[in-house]
């Protein structure tokens, strides 16, 4: 069982992901923007991993996980990136950025429950 932070702006997508997580005995906290995400990370340091949507209504979800200019990490939470694509967010572009942020894996919506659970297992190893 893992304690997960879900950053996703689309309520329906978030609800379905939480459904999968809870059915598989994980615990999830859902936030829909960067401000709430930052707040949650600072409040509760017991997250095992974060599941982050790339595009958050104009905000860049990955900016929270980018390394600082001195190379230090903003947060050392293991990262699972989810993306629905979009203008300028091709498979290659998102994968490259996710790699740069040290993401465990990138999942493209729609993804299977197994893919998500597998990614979590990998993240909390």
């Amino acid at each position: 069982m893992a304690n997960l932070l879900l950053i996703e702006d689309d309520p329906a997508v978030a609800e379905s992901i939480i459904f999968v997580l809870e059915n598989n005995n994980h615990q999830a906290t859902h936030v829909s923007n960067l401000e709430q995400a930052t707040h949650s990370i600072h409040q509760d340091n017991h997250f095992d991993a974060a599941i982050v949507d790339v595009w958050l209504s104009g905000e860049d979800g990955l900016s929270l996980f980018q390394r600082n200019e001195d190379g230090s990490e903003k947060t050392n939470l293991p990262l699972i990136v989810i993306s629905g694509g979009g203008p300028g967010r091709t498979l290659e572009a998102v994968t490259a950025r996710a790699d740069a942020c040290g993401a465990v894996t990138v999942l493209y919506k729609p993804f299977s429950d197994e893919d998500l659970l597998g990614a979590i297992a990998k993240a909390i190893e």
């Binding site: 329906a12 997508v13 379905s16 999968v20 629905g84 694509g85 979009g86 967010r89 493209y108 993804f111």
Partner: peptide, 14 residues
Amino acid sequence: AHEVSNIIHPVGVY
């Protein structure tokens, strides 16, 4: 594609 993927992802899950 982005919009559609967000819509159909929950459909798959349920």
